[in-house]
Design a binder for these strands. Structure first.
Lengths: 184, 184, 184, 184
DNA sequence: TCGTAAGCGAGACGGTACGTCTGGTCTTTAC
DNA sequence: GTAAAGACCAGACGTACCGTCTCGCTTACGA
């Protein structure tokens, strides 16, 4: 248990993460990923830019953390495997469809392509927890679970990138249908 | 038919596209999408930056055209529907795996999210021809074909974005297997 | 003779130096050396910050060039050696007293202490021409002339630094009186 | 007499000034005036930054105090007036030549130009004591003494700022020679 | 002996420059 | 009219530094 606060010296960090995350999502929603400048996020959060960079090493890392916070844990419930997978897919589809989240997600992805350290953050802090949770729930080998994640997330993002709109419910259901023939 | 060259006035354009495309792919391969500056591409191609902007309205458009040129038409051959789909998927997987192409693809993709005009280019000039070809070959309704494209391309790009590496052959085959249960 | 312009290719530089110099001096006058930001100077000159950095490698270099332009050549006229020296001292005293110039001068000095490259600029491009001119006029060995420059400029700047005001005329005359007993 | 310590309540200050002064001079010597950050000085002294700011209102004030401590009182001895002046000049020249001291001096000086409060400290706490001492020893009117101080200190600092090196002995002697014709 | 006033270390925070970079436009000269 | 060269604009990025503030701990004096 490392629950007991480590013996901190110095001024403790203010409780700003929630404020910053809110300001970040709001900025991305209104201005897009590129338009959501660190300066603007800082201003919107009522925080100094230096504070952002003290807590997150880059814009990408901030957005990644912000998404992690916004998404929360996957709900993995359902009568049988099929139900579990289907509801998880509907959940992620809804999350990505949330205004701002899709743009943020895709944007951080773009950054990750050229920034290995960001890729590290993304895969370790973002993807890994979901992979583990799904793996525990389904009992599939990890390469299968990774493929499942790639298929679902990739498809949703690709649709969003091509059309600018989140995937329609009918198509989400079609995708679920397809996936279930393998993972159901 | 606008086949017969319109009576051009003035100095005809040099045959620079091939050179530029090569330089572009090389730059992306060596420096990543973001690192492949328009300035650097111009220098690498031995061309002025103005020339690039005279021919393509933006960096994204250049990259899109470059990929279009690099990919060429989908080969849609095979004994049956399953063979056709499978070979097409292997083809696009190989194309995206080509050094530089994946990064270029993913980069232009994420740019499209914040740039409607680029999205237009991407979906009209890039996706549309493939969609039509696949639709003709398979005789599926267009929403089905679009989903197929989203699934395949999205999955390959997501894997690349997360790992920095193209998808391994085994995983490509697993994806083919999954897709064929619906589209085979 | 390198008079004939070298065969320049590309767009020639606009005639902006004068505008920038004016804006620089104005900014220093109104906001002090530290307050005269590169951003503010750029804005005041109606020019992009990139343009400033294309032409001058640093803020210090810009200010140095600006002073060089503002001061112009030393007037070395007078009936005898004493007259020449005295009028030159009155000239530099007046220049340093000009609003903004003193602060700019002292500021760039401060920067030079920590920036050898700026010191180079300062001593080569700023001090050297004056040293040569004075040396030609007086026929003194160069170490003597350098001492003269150090005494006069140093005294004027020190007074300004201590009081915040340029040296009063009476004190300038007293200094001239003192200097002339050696250099007259 | 304020000799008897006023009955202080609370924890008395530790005896840290000497340590801080040493660390300050060392930092300036190694990193230059601008490079000698308050953070770095604090670290070098093994002291918290808050402690520095509790004792000195600004970086400039710290450096000024540090120099005051390093210099100590002017020695005003000699057979005649000329001797007194000459030895005092040699003394200040040596002090300014001490590694770190010159850079510190020049730096705090230039800062003073943009900071009236620092100027106050400098002229009241630093210059005033020396002025009074010299005035007592020479019996000259105060404007004459101020000019003397400006000439000597200004010259030494200007030389240092231009060359990065303290003034050579020969030049110091030449300056003494010049000054003595007026103040000897 | 115990409260209280202050010193102190550690470090978060705001604010504001700096200098670099990029995408895209504009201007000039040469072909 | 195309091409090359490069100046120019607008603005984001990440870093550095200063001076303030918060917190928890320690040291002394005084009741």
């Amino acid at each position: 248990m490392q629950a007991t606060t480590p013996p901190t010296a110095g001024r403790p960090r203010s409780d700003l993460n929630a404020t910053v995350f809110a300001a970040t999502l709001r900025s991305v929603r209104e201005l897009g990923y590129a338009g959501a400048t660190m300066d603007r996020i800082a201003t919107a959060a009522g925080v100094a830019k230096t504070t952002l960079y003290r807590r997150w090493p880059s814009k990408g890392a901030l957005i990644a953390d912000c998404l992690l916070d916004a998404f929360g844990p996957v709900p993995l419930t359902g009568a049988d495997r099929g139900e579990v997978v289907a509801s998880a897919i509907r959940w992620i589809a809804a999350k990505i469809s949330a205004p701002g989240a899709g743009a943020a997600f895709a944007g951080v992805f773009s950054d990750a392509i050229n920034d290995p350290s960001l890729r590290e953050i993304l895969s370790k802090r973002f993807q890994e927890p979901y992979r583990v949770a799904v793996q525990d729930a389904l009992g599939e080998p990890d390469d299968r679970v990774l493929l499942l994640i790639d298929v679902v997330t990739g498809t949703l993002l690709h649709r969003m990138g091509m059309t600018g709109e989140p995937m329609a419910d009918a198509d989400v259901e079609a995708m679920i249908d397809m996936v279930l023939r393998t993972f159901g």
